[in-house]
Write a protein that binds this DNA or RNA. Structure first.
Lengths: 144, 144
DNA sequence: TTCCTTGCAAACGATTTGCATTGGA
DNA sequence: TCCAATGCAAATCGTTTGCAAGGAA
């Protein structure tokens, strides 16, 4: 995890953003939690040491500089996770019952197939593809 | 569009839900607008004839009985559209420049490939798949 | 008539922001 | 030092809800 910290530190320095105590623990919390987490969950994980308002501000800044990525869940709550250049490329399994989001990493073949399909569909509509989001909905093991 | 109205009417009757004036115009508005729309947009489209609170309640009921589907955008706002059994299965091309959302329908082969991949990825994580959402971001023809 | 629906207004709750204070490089 | 970052409290705003009145079956 030292490498991660250094890489992130470097990344933030380049972006001209300070790596403060609060931001450090926010990032560490997310690194520990594996997968998208809400501000409230992170707030609990850091044991309330970072006020929610400050936490939201940090999350916003960290997302802006691409250390985190954000997604809006069907429960209307934003979940944050480490950016893909840190965690690696993946997609999301979303439990329609409890809202939990789990990361899944496609195999190289799977990813290649998906990209091909994306490219083809978009091309016919005259779109220049810049990215895609693939979300699988279903029921997780514990909710079933 | 007569067929649509009858089918929906039937659907609602079976579900024990009344097709009222407000609901009728809500559904018609969405049928006209093609693609996911926010409550505010629908409210404007029906020219304010349906109060926002009532509109939200209708949208909620209609989503529950699967006449509409809802999705939470990256701006934190809920967008509604006619359910896929009405519009047909499709995915979304989202222009990151102008925000336009275009529906794209995958070919049978494309859809089959995607479902296979989805099934495989989800199964390993212990998920029961109920559906998937594929959103392609990029630049549309007119914005390019 | 019987309830499901509506309208209005008030409540909610996640997220954002103003402002004075603190702390990192 | 100097300005970004913080903490607190108040404000936002999309969405939800209580309750009495209205309308579909």
């Amino acid at each position: 995890m030292q490498h991660l910290e250094q890489a992130v530190e470097q990344h933030l320095a380049t972006a001209g953003v300070r790596l403060t105590q609060g931001r450090r623990s926010t990032i560490n919390a997310l690194a520990t939690m594996h997968g998208p987490r809400t501000a409230a969950e992170i707030h609990a994980q850091v044991d309330g040491t970072v006020p929610l308002s400050s936490l939201y501000r940090s999350l916003s800044v960290l997302t802006d500089v691409d250390v985190l990525s954000a997604q809006h869940g069907s429960d209307g709550v934003i979940r944050f996770e480490l950016a893909e250049w840190i965690t690696g490329h993946h997609h999301h399994l979303i439990c329609t019952s409890c809202g939990t989001v789990v990361d899944v990493t496609p195999t190289v073949d799977q990813e290649k197939s998906m990209e091909q399909i994306v490219e083809k569909m978009a091309h016919e509509a005259g779109f220049d593809v810049s990215g895609h989001r693939f979300e699988i909905e279903g029921t997780c093991r514990t909710c079933r």
